[in-house]
């Protein structure tokens, strides 16, 4: 057991025990430990990658949302403008139509009044003629009681009526 001469017994036990330790630890310790470490690292890496991906997706989603919002705002503006225009147009149309209708009604009323007046005038003419004829009849009946006067009248009438 000198310092620099390897001792047979210790060599033997060292080979046996170190070798045994290596195989046992490899199977029961290093295998599970390195496996778990690797799994955990993969997990962490996976989680980090996922977070990065999610962040990217979120950013994309946000920009998309903004785009959609902007588009919606735009559409709303367009719609509002369109609605206003339609409303204005409708009002203008209504006004125009009302004007035209009013004009037409006035015209009709005027026409009706004209017709009425003409009818009235005609009626009145007729009445006046009838009245005049009645008066004339009465006057004639009284004047032509005798034969002479009748003759005279005929004479007059013939005289006045120029039959040419």
């Amino acid at each position: 057991m000198d310092l620099l001469i390897p001792d047979l017994g210790l060599l033997f036990w060292q080979i046996i025990i170190f070798g045994g330790l290596f195989f046992i630890l490899r199977k029961f310790a290093w295998g599970p430990i390195t496996q778990s470490l690797k799994e955990r690292e993969d997990n962490i890496q996976g989680a980090l990658d996922l977070a990065e991906k999610t962040r990217g997706e979120m950013a994309k989603l946000k920009s998309e949302n903004e785009q959609i919002l902007a588009q919606a705002r735009n559409e709303r503006d367009v719609m509002l403008r369109g609605a206003k225009e339609t409303a204005d147009k409708m009002v203008a149309d209504a006004r125009d139509r009302a004007n035209i209708e009013g004009q037409r009604m006035l015209e009709q009323a005027r026409e009706a009044m004209q017709n009425e007046r003409q009818a009235l005038v005609a009626q009145m003419k007729k009445e006046v003629v009838n009245l005049s004829i009645e008066v004339a009849e009465k006057v004639l009946r009284r004047e032509l009681n005798d034969k002479a006067s009748q003759e005279k009248l005929v004479q007059d009438l013939v005289a006045t009526s120029h039959l040419n």
Binding site: M1, D7, L8, G9, L10, F12, W13, Q14, I17, F18, G20, L21, I24, L25, F28, A29
Partner: peptide
């Protein structure tokens, strides 16, 4: 092939490690 002090310590360390 005696279990000397070193061999005993070797076994002890192997047990500790195990």
């Amino acid at each position: 092939f005696s279990i000397t002090k070193n061999v005993a310590s070797l076994i002890l360390s192997a047990l500790i490690l195990f």
